[in-house]
């Protein structure tokens, strides 16, 4: 029963959502929209479970004064502050919640992502070697696209940004399209396997 109920639920809802696409009746559309709402609601609860797990983990480290517990306290303080300000003063314009987001969270996020520029450049320096025709093609394309995105490229020749744009809009886009079609076919086959109960890994082992 512990496995049969989820498999049945999966089949019923999956089959209904698939079938609904071909039944444009207002009742069918209403039921479809309701199920979409249900999915969103349950998804938010999965976020809550993740947050609860995160709070539990950090609290445990703080209470047991494990190594680096001070950082866990900082994490809990940050979380609590955002939640309290968000629910107490709201999230609109000129609220402390938005001030915290703009002056603390957003700069930290942007800096964290900008750090990747150093690591990707360092990895590229170590990894980029024109050992084969394919590797050379990758190296050349990356170089042209990078030069084409900065003023230096235009300074060298207007062909550089033009070529970069052409690469992005023709061969690169076409290869991406091929990948998309492949991903689409994979999505359909996996979705059918899930609905029909062949793919059950989401149930876990027990």
């Amino acid at each position: 029963m512990q496995r049969a109920i989820p498999i049945t639920v999966c089949f019923v809802f999956g089959f209904f959502m698939l079938l609904q696409f071909f039944v444009p009746h207002k009742l069918s559309v209403l039921a479809y929209e309701n199920v979409l709402d249900w999915m969103q609601i349950i998804f938010v609860f999965t976020l809550l479970v993740g947050a609860a797990s995160y709070i539990r983990l950090n609290t445990k480290k703080v209470v047991q004064t494990q190594a680096g517990w001070g950082y866990n306290l900082v994490a809990l303080a940050g979380l609590s502050l955002m939640v309290i300000l968000g629910f107490w003063k709201g999230t609109g314009e000129n609220t402390p919640f938005l001030w915290m987001f703009n002056n603390l969270q957003a700069p930290m996020q942007a800096t964290m992502f900008s750090l990747l520029a150093f690591f990707v450049a360092s990895a590229a320096y170590r990894g980029f070697r024109a050992r084969s025709w394919e590797a050379t093609l990758l190296l050349l394309t990356a170089t042209v696209v990078m030069l084409g995105r900065v003023p230096l490229g235009n300074l060298i020749s207007h062909w550089v940004p033009d070529t970069a744009n052409w690469i992005l809009s023709v061969p690169s886009m076409a290869a991406k399209r091929g990948l998309y079609i492949g991903i689409g076919l994979g999505t359909i086959s996996t979705s059918l396997r899930i609905i029909l109960g062949i793919e059950r890994t989401y149930l876990g082992r027990r």
Binding site: L18, V35, W38, I194
Partner: peptide, 18 residues
């Protein structure tokens, strides 16, 4: 919890196909 996950995954798969 698997019932809730099954609903999200099943309905998501149904929506994803078309």
């Amino acid at each position: 919890s698997r019932i809730s996950i099954a609903l999200i995954i099943g309905a998501g798969a149904g929506v994803a196909i078309p």
